[in-house]
Design a protein around this nucleic acid. Structure first.
Lengths: 111, 111
DNA sequence: TTGACATGCAACCATTTAGTTGCATATAGC
DNA sequence: GCTATATGCAACTAAATGGTTGCATGTCAA
C-alpha cells in the first residue's frame, strides 16, 4: 500500500539528515563499504564524531528507504547503493516546483 | 553562515511532510492564497482534517525554509511561492545520486 | 463603536528522531 | 577451543516534530 506520497515522505525524510547524505556520498565514492569502513572514513575525513551504532541506525534508515542494500559477507556487512524509482520521482517533483507558476497542466497535485 | 548542507537539511526536511507538499501544490495551482483559503481547500479537496493553526505552522516552516513568502494584505495574509537556489541545488544533488556509480569526478562529497 | 472575521501567540501533549551505553552474537584466525 | 573482530539488539535519554486548545490582536463593515 505504498503510494508515491508515502515514498516521498520517507525519501525526503531520509535525505534531510546530513549524516545520511554523507554516507550516500561516501558510498558513491566507493560502493560496497562495510559499517566499519564507513565509521572510520566519516569520523576521519570529516569533523564529525558519531558512535558506530549511530551510523548503523542511519544505514538502517537508508536501507528501509530503499536507497541502499546490505549483504552479509562473512563477519562484515557490505552496503551498496540502489537507485529506486522514488529518486527519479523526487527529482521530477522538485523540477516541477522549480519551474514557472501555473504550468497549465491543471492537475499539479502530486502528493 | 548558512552553507548548502544546512539549506539541504531544511529543504528536504520541509519537503518530507505530505501536508507541506500539498500546500505547495495548492499554491502552484493558484498563487497568493490566504491561510483561510488554504485551510478550506485542503480540508475540502482532500480527505485530511487539520486545524487552522496546524496549517499555519506548516506555512511558517515553508516560509522559514524560503519556499514561500507572506505579505499581510488587510486582515488576510497572502502566501506566494518562491524558487530558492536550494531547490535547484537539491535537484542537482538527487540527479547526481540517481546517475551511475563512481562518476569519475572524484570529489562527490556534497554535504 | 461594536461585532464579525482572519490571523497570531503561547502552552501543552504525544510521537518520532538522533544519539548514547551496555551487552550479546557470529565469524575468522591462531 | 580461545580470542579478537565486526556487527546486532535493547533500553534509555534529550530534543525535535506535528498536533491540539484557548485566548489575544488587528482590521473591515454595518
Amino acid at each position: 500500500m505504498e503510494g508515491p506520497g508515502q515514498s516521498l515522505d520517507t525519501l525526503f525524510g531520509a535525505l534531510a539528515d546530513p549524516t545520511r547524505r554523507l554516507i550516500l556520498d561516501e558510498l558513491r565514492k566507493r560502493d560496497g563499504q562495510s559499517l566499519f569502513e564507513l565509521c572510520g572514513r566519516i569520523v576521519s575525513f570529516y569533523d564529525i564524531s558519531l558512535s558506530r551504532q549511530a551510523i548503523s541506525k542511519h544505514l538502517a534508515v537508508l536501507e528501509d528507504t530503499g536507497l541502499i542494500a546490505c549483504t552479509r559477507q562473512g563477519r562484515t556487512k557490505q552496503h551498496s547503493l540502489i537507485r529506486p524509482e522514488a529518486l527519479q520521482y523526487a527529482e521530477r517533483w522538485i523540477a516541477a516546483h522549480r519551474s514557472e507558476l501555473t504550468n497549465g497542466s491543471g492537475k499539479g497535485e502530486t502528493i
